[in-house]
């Protein structure tokens, strides 16, 4: 005849109890009403009395062990444990020391390796985005998805962020323009050269030898990037055919560190006809954009563009920005 000693429920929200102290030793006689052990919960330490009598046997947990409520801790047997079957289980010290072991057994932690999503064969309907996150309202994004428009098409077109539903609706007619055969467009602006002249004098006093064409190339590259005709993280090379040179990212390096090469395939070619008698110039060059500057006291800046490269609206935004920079070069240079 034996009786189990279990971890008692001492509180309403108690899941486990800690054996604070064994007050009887294995093999010791326990009378009904004797305190066998003390149990600690999150509220208090309480002495646990035995309702039965017998020899304390099969002690499974040592003092300090945290035991789930209801688990058998030990038994009271009619005979001392040593007299019982020699094959009787011994105190499992590993369980007693590792207090969380009983809990861990109940809820084994499974370590799983996350599978790469491309193995699942699912195609994510993520919106294409160039150059980082483009801000758009949830409704605008839904519309873009429905209409199969890339969000970057709108920003390339100069639509300001965050993009709203109305921007997407207004964009619709332009989708068709993309499929129209390429053609050349031309737009020009007029600007005073005064600020450039002053800047050149200042550069000369600083003993920086920068040609006018190079200075203009710096401003043009800055404008290309600012208007997102060229993404901020892509290279922008400006060809100066008259000098047989090409400047790589002139807007990103210092005026004293312009990188010149012989490359003839730039994104844009720049012709400086200022203070010359040339008043017009047209050429089918390899460059996607052609910028020519003419004039003396008043400059004409002409932008010739391939409509497959930039749209007319974008070209106007770009030329406005170049013109602005020519009239206020220090804004960029400083």
């Amino acid at each position: 005849m034996s009786h189990d000693i279990i971890m008692p429920v001492l509180g309403m929200n108690q899941d486990t109890g800690i054996i604070a102290e064994w007050l009887k030793q294995p093999g010791e006689w326990v009378a009904s009403g004797d305190v066998v052990m003390s149990v600690e919960t999150d509220k208090a330490v309480q002495d646990i009395e035995s309702r039965y009598e017998g020899y304390l046997s099969h002690v499974k947990y040592e003092a300090g062990a945290e035991v789930p409520v209801g688990d058998v801790i030990a038994q009271l047997t009619a005979q001392p444990e040593s007299d019982l079957d020699s094959a009787s289980p011994e105190v499992d010290t590993s369980k007693a020391v590792t207090t969380e072991a009983p809990v861990a057994e109940k809820a084994p932690v499974q370590v799983t390796t996350p599978q790469p999503s491309h193995n699942t064969g699912l195609v994510k309907t993520e919106l294409p985005s160039v150059g980082g996150k483009i801000l758009a309202s949830p409704k605008a994004k839904s519309l873009l998805r429905d209409r199969g428009i890339a969000i970057s098409d709108l920003t390339d077109d100069g639509v300001q962020q965050p993009i709203h539903a109305a921007d997407v609706m207004a964009y619709e007619p332009k989708i068709r323009q993309k499929h129209v055969a390429s053609s050349m467009g031309k737009v020009h602006s007029v600007v005073s050269p005064d600020a450039i002249v002053v800047t050149e004098q200042w550069l000369a006093s600083d003993e920086l030898s920068v040609s006018r064409a190079e200075l203009l190339a710096v401003l043009v590259a800055g404008a290309l990037r600012y208007t997102k005709v060229i993404e901020s993280d892509l290279d922008c090379s400006v060809v100066i055919p008259a000098d047989d040179c090409c400047l790589l990212n002139p807007d990103l390096v210092g005026l004293g560190d312009l990188q010149k090469s012989q490359d003839e395939n730039g994104f844009v070619s720049l012709w400086d006809f200022t203070e010359s008698s040339i008043a017009g110039f047209e050429l089918d060059s390899d460059a996607k954009l052609n910028i020519s500057v003419f004039g003396g006291e008043q400059w004409t800046v002409e932008l010739r563009f391939d409509t497959n490269v930039i749209r007319p609206k974008q070209a106007i935004v770009l030329l406005s920005e170049i013109t602005r920079r020519i009239s206020q070069p220090l804004r960029q240079l400083l």
Binding site: S137, P138, K139, A140, A166
Partner: peptide, 8 residues
């Protein structure tokens, strides 16, 4: 309940 319809 209306997130994907929001424009502001």
């Amino acid at each position: 309940q209306a997130f994907y319809y929001l424009d502001a």
